[in-house]
């Protein structure tokens, strides 16, 4: 299921091919009782996409759609069950431990919860010097200057260095987390819902910071979020995940103007809009997402899809290219196009 050529002339920095992660009960009682009692959860199901250098790819999905697992698989914080991740042409999955340590300098993660992402017993200076020293980023003498530089880069005051995380607000902690990620001078950053745990007023600041850093440092960013509004203004392209499968991926303008997958359309309808005259006519999507332990056959979305037919219940739709750089996993993407677009 290879990507059919990106519109951009840029070389992809990250290539994900058929990446799959299954979680299963392993060892212990279930092993003694035999495989019959094993339940497998496919968190990431044969996902393929590419991220071009210098690009921000937004990845959207409900909770349980596998977006966090996918992000962690890319950095091998979670070992994928199968599939390939190539970074700058090199296969990450087959790297040895030592090579992986070197590779980790190239890719970093920004975490969801700024309150648990920082070691509460370490001052910001201790935290950053440990990173700089461990990866031999600079000489010991140059460490204070580098820390000052990092703090300035993320818009924190120099006095922040000698304080413990508990003295900072959520937004400031998120900036510290970003500074820690930047300390190794990475080329690729996975930002796992970086603003879902901070105040709305701070969200825009953090997103702008990510944009600035991309422009300043030429970063490539995978931005994971659970709603489209967060990724809309910063992403170059957006991918939509549903129960571990990539159902649609397209340039941002395209996906908002002409979404082709019924799920993407529903997500767009569900986004709250600050318009008091507009009353939600009906729930955008009926029902709950099915259990990932026991996903529906065929197209995972058929249980909630207004366009579902018998074919959807039995046959998994392939990821089809519908226009330049726009791929969708739906048997009825032509019908979906006729469906009134939400915006």
């Amino acid at each position: 299921m290879r990507d059919a050529g990106q519109p951009s002339a840029l070389r992809p920095l990250v290539e994900v091919d058929d990446l799959t992660k299954r979680f299963g009960a392993r060892g212990g009682l279930s092993q003694i009782l035999g495989a019959a009692s094993q339940r497998q959860l496919t968190a990431v199901d044969a996902v393929s996409f590419q991220i071009n250098a210098g690009e921000i790819l937004g990845l959207v999905g409900e909770s349980g759609s596998g977006k966090t697992t996918l992000g962690r698989c890319l950095l091998r914080l979670v070992e994928p069950s199968s599939g390939q991740v190539r970074f700058d042409g090199k296969d990450l999955i087959s790297l040895s431990k030592g090579d992986l340590r070197v590779a980790r300098r190239q890719m970093q993660m920004i975490f969801q919860d700024p309150y648990s992402a920082l070691n509460p017993r370490m001052t910001i200076r201790q935290m950053l010097s440990e990173v700089l020293r461990f990866h031999r980023i600079c000489t010991d003498a140059a460490i204070p200057a580098r820390i000052a530089e990092l703090l300035a880069l993320v818009g924190l005051d120099q006095s922040a260095a000698d304080r413990l995380p508990r003295h900072f607000s959520g937004g400031q902690r998120q900036r510290i987390g970003i500074a820690r990620a930047l300390a190794v001078e990475p080329r690729f950053i996975v930002a796992d819902e970086p603003v879902s745990a901070v105040d709305v007023s701070v969200q825009a600041q953090i997103m702008n910071l990510l944009l600035d850093l991309r422009d300043q440092l030429g970063l490539t960013i995978l931005l994971i979020a659970h709603d489209l509004s967060v990724v809309r203004y910063v992403s170059d392209r957006v991918g939509v995940l549903y129960l571990g499968r990539l159902v649609e991926i397209a340039p941002t303008a395209q996906i908002f103007a002409a979404p082709r997958h019924p799920y993407t359309q529903a997500l767009l309808r569900a986004a709250p809009r600050p318009d008091p005259d507009r009353h939600p006519a009906q729930p955008a999507i009926a029902g709950e997402p099915p259990s990932p332990l026991n996903p529906p056959p065929g197209c995972h979305f058929h249980t909630r899809c207004p366009l579902a037919t018998a074919r959807c219940k039995s046959e998994m739709p392939p990821l089809q290219t519908v226009s330049d750089g726009h791929q969708v996993r739906c048997h009825h993407h032509d019908l979906a196009l006729l469906n009134p677009s939400p915006r």
């Binding site: 962690r72 950095l75 914080l77 992986l100 340590r101 070197v102 980790r104 300098r105 890719m107 970093q108 993660m109 975490f111 969801q112 919860d113 648990s116 992402a117 920082l118 070691n119 509460p120 017993r121 370490m122 440990e130 990173v131 461990f134 990866h135 987390g177 820690r180 190794v184």
Partner: peptide, 26 residues
């Protein structure tokens, strides 16, 4: 399970360093 341990792993720290510097003090 906290994210700062995950962060330490993503920075490439070894188990010994994570245990001694990031887990035990907490």
């Amino acid at each position: 399970k906290s994210e700062y341990i995950l962060a330490a792993r993503s920075l490439g720290y070894g188990h010994g360093r994570i245990l001694v510097r990031h887990v035990i003090p907490n």
